[in-house]
Design a protein around this nucleic acid. Structure first.
Lengths: 341, 341
DNA sequence: GTGAAAGCGCTAACAC
DNA sequence: GTGTTAGCGCTTTCAC
């Protein structure tokens, strides 16, 4: 359809200005405020005028401007989401679930990926100050948290510690560490490598390693710790780490770490002739689709991404609306037994 | 920092209203329009007044409202992006690159995932009508394209045929098909399975299969075609397809298809005892990170996602600005030889 | 029930 | 150079 009959009939050519609320009002022979009422289904409007207004709206092909409405209501119905990347499966899944959750709450999602873009996070937080969005869900791995100081707008952190005023939505990582520990213990592992994220990033996620090690050490199991560099998300980085691990610690019989590192270790291990799960057990933490997609699906502690996303969305929206937020901050992880432990 | 010294000093408590442009004007003893000028670095403002204005802005902790500015300029500086999902690696990577490209063009990205959300696409396109965003990049697998009829706002399609008025950014798929064909031919394959997407979705991507088959048939190679159901993106769906493939066509010695299906075939094949690449060759089309992350990295025809994203971003922005768009519509794919062919 | 008018916070002509 | 004025397109009190 090139151009609708009505558009042409009404002179809605490309250049012609779009109908505004006052055009509709004039056409229907009423005041703009009345049109607003029927538009928003508020107040009382007689059936007769409603009909007239609706006819006028249809005739002029009227579509209200969201921007004007937002200015008037001083809000935008959009939530900003700050994540390190989208290509990483964890953040991809998370972003998808956040978008869905926000959509159902009648909010739009604006995305900012911080990785590989200098200053983008600062710019984005500035947009919050400029009231381009109503609130932020922050889940990036920033080292400089000062940009969040003195912010009055609603903000919640996803698995990150930003400052004491900002609530954190996260999975019960202590329980996650416990699940992993119990699984390795059941499997009889005695020499474990624990691959941890960069410790300069403040995240509740570090807890699962702590909980894990506490338990393992209580059972007299040796745990060798390896720290990843900051913002290492590339598979190549992980392969290097894997190589380093096997070189330093060839007697390892169990590995715990995030999905992709563990997958890289699986790859390296097979190449070096380790038999999995007979001689080497693997548990991936996070449990994104990534772990069930290879030749040998990886046993994982799964973070309940959907629930976490819903919780975060619900929480930020409540805060934006000024409603009471008595929602919990955590969700429970789950052990998914597959072929590597 | 709980609250900045200045905030407190200026009474910028939570309840206190934020400074507006006229507050700054009053404080500086000038007109609002002058403040606007220094804000936007436009026109000529004497050094003295500039200083006064800047001091006033700092003192009142003034942050301009983006919404008011947008209403005034009737634009939003945001582009909507419609994709089936974000958890799929192709779309995750694409979204990430789009966001980066738009960021550098000074635009924000609003995301809509259509999969698993009835009507969300219609709602989203409606937002374009409501001028919530300035333009759209559409890359979803919709069957009902009528919602794009009669749209006057800028829109460009990503690897999708929507209607004749909407330009399409896509990879040169014919060339992609040719690259795959040549690789299989060099490897001496004679019985190929070609796994194609659902044909009800109109996409230039179908071209690579056509080009591929044309060449293969010219060389007398048998090609067995398998069609995927609509919106099959889950790995489980792909595993089923793989099983079906080997059951129906056990003599296969080469498989072509999108990344995840081919990965699923790899998995199935290994389980069934096919030796790759000796007895069975695999080529994945798309070449996302997914293909280089398993135990045996998959040879792939890679779509240049970053370039495609930059092109799409640049194109939509030019259209939004009313600039001439003489940019090309296509990018070249590349064969990445790895371990499966 | 409906309309007039003020306001949301900024930009842009056009005077001076 | 700077101020005045009139929008941008909607919502919302408050009379009538």
């Amino acid at each position: 359809m090139e151009k609708s009959y009505e558009d042409v009939w009404n002179g809605q050519e490309d250049g012609a200005h779009m109908a505004r609320i006052k055009d509709v009002a004039r056409e229907a022979g009423v005041a703009a405020s009345t049109v607003s009422l029927v538009l928003n289904q508020k107040g009382y409007v007689s059936e007769a005028t409603r009909q007239k207004v609706e006819a006028a709206m249809k005739k002029l092909n009227y579509i209200p401007s969201e921007v004007a409405r937002n200015l008037s209501l001083s809000r935008t119905q959009t939530i900003g989401v700050i994540l390190p990347s989208l290509s990483h499966p964890f953040f991809g899944e998370l972003a998808e679930e956040l978008e869905a959750a926000l959509y159902h709450l009648d909010y739009k999602m604006m995305i900012c990926c911080t990785q590989a873009k200098e200053n983008s996070e600062r710019d984005f937080v500035d947009m919050l100050r400029r009231r381009t969005m109503d609130g932020i869900i922050m889940g990036a791995h920033s080292l400089d948290l000062s940009i969040y100081d003195g912010l009055d707008q609603p903000i919640i952190a996803f698995d990150r510690i930003i400052n004491p005023r900002i609530p954190i939505v996260h999975c019960d990582h202590r329980r996650g560490g416990q699940l992993a520990a119990e699984a390795f213990l059941r499997a009889g592992c005695g020499r474990i490598a624990d691959i941890i994220g960069y410790q300069g990033v403040h995240s509740p996620a570090h807890e699962y390693h702590r909980a894990f090690r506490t338990i393992m050490e209580a059972y007299g199991v040796e745990v060798h710790v390896i720290e990843l560099p900051w913002n290492a998300f590339g598979y190549a980085d992980f392969l290097q780490t894997a190589e380093r691990l096997f070189a330093e610690y060839p007697a390892v019989d169990g590995i715990l770490g995030a999905d992709m590192v563990v997958a890289a270790c699986q790859h390296s291990a097979v190449a070096r002739g380790y038999r999995i799960p007979e001689k080497l057990k693997l548990i991936a933490y996070d449990g994104t689709s990534f772990t069930c997609t290879g030749a040998q699906p990886i046993t994982a502690v799964r973070q309940p991404i959907r629930q976490l996303a819903r919780l975060a969305a619900e929480k930020i929206v409540r805060r934006v609306k000024g409603e009471m937020d008595d929602l919990p901050c955590t969700c429970e992880p789950e052990l998914i037994e597959r072929e590597t432990c």
